[in-house]
């Protein structure tokens, strides 16, 4: 309690209270949403009930405009996300290690990376089409761009911040530079690597709408949101948003699980 003047800053919560709170939050959110909607304060925003109805309809019949079920939309998007993210994770970790390890590489790459990082995924649509034509390839490219920079920068900063004395000690004991890189520096940077992967996966989902504006086939959650906007079936747009949020949350939980497993030495 010392130094924590307010009860909500207490370090420890009873596990039951913790569980109850994490259910109460979303329930309160849904309740307020339904209430404000019923009071007419949200204009044409669909109510949680209408969104739930659209979700059920997506599962049983598919949407009314693209005529695809929820599984088709979510599956197509998930495939694009996982492909783009896998490439970004591999490339970002590799290049990030190089940037963190070599001062020359860092000096050369930093300005390029820092310049490209803030460019919104939407701005890449035209170039993605010109380079990767239509369909899934340009979509995967846009997801890749979203996920790549967070991975790269986190890995690089992890590699920069590890205690170099450890590396020097290992070298004195006869470790080769590659052994120092993979056996000392990389494990030390692992917490940063996981942070980068988790942030990258989140940004990958955030790039999905832009990614699916490149002329993908008839399914995808981003496409679902865009086309329901066109005919003003907003409950399907919000249903698509809910699915993106849910799948994103589940993937993040999976990543946290992996992180806890690989970093159990901490």
């Amino acid at each position: 309690m010392a130094g924590k003047p307010f009860p909500w800053q207490r370090d420890e919560l009873h596990p039951a209270a913790r569980r109850a709170l994490s259910v109460c939050g979303p329930l309160a959110f849904l309740g307020l949403w339904q209430l404000f909607g019923a009071a007419g304060w949200l204009g044409a925003t669909p109510s949680p009930y209408a969104v739930a109805r659209a979700l059920v309809r997506l599962v049983t019949h598919g949407d009314p405009f693209l005529k695809k079920t929820l599984w088709a939309h979510a599956g197509a998007s998930l495939l694009r996300i996982l492909c783009g993210f896998a490439i970004a994770a591999a490339a970002g970790t590799g290049l990030g290690m190089l940037m963190g390890w070599s001062r020359v590489a860092r000096q050369m790459l930093r300005p390029v990376v820092e310049m490209m990082r803030p460019i919104p995924p939407f701005a890449w649509i035209v170039l993605a089409i010109l380079w990767f034509r239509m369909g899934d390839a340009p979509a995967v490219f846009i997801v890749f761009l979203g996920a790549f920079f967070p991975v790269l920068l986190n890995v690089a900063s992890g590699m920069e911040s590890y205690d170099r004395v450890l590396g020097e000690a290992a070298a004195t004991l006869g470790a080769s530079p590659l052994q120092v890189l993979f056996r000392v520096a990389l494990p030390a940077a692992l917490p940063h690597v996981f942070t980068g992967l988790r942030v990258g996966l989140g940004v990958a989902w955030m790039s999905l709408i832009a990614a699916e504006m490149v002329g993908v086939g008839g399914s995808g959650l981003g496409l679902l949101i865009e086309s329901s906007k066109a005919v003003w079936d907003l409950e399907y747009a919000v249903a698509g948003m809910v699915v993106i949020g849910t799948v994103g949350l589940l993937l993040d939980l999976a990543m946290r699980g992996m992180e806890a497993h690989f970093l159990r030495w901490r």
Binding site: L66, I125, V126, I129, L130, W131, R133, M134, G135, M213, V214, G215, V216, G217, G218, L223, E226, S227
Partner: peptide, 20 residues
């Protein structure tokens, strides 16, 4: 057909890339 949904400006790029 293989129908793709996209905004008209993107259709021009897709046609330029030879894929539409």
């Amino acid at each position: 057909l293989q129908v793709a949904y996209m905004a008209p400006p993107e259709m021009l790029s897709a046609m330029f890339s030879g894929s539409l």
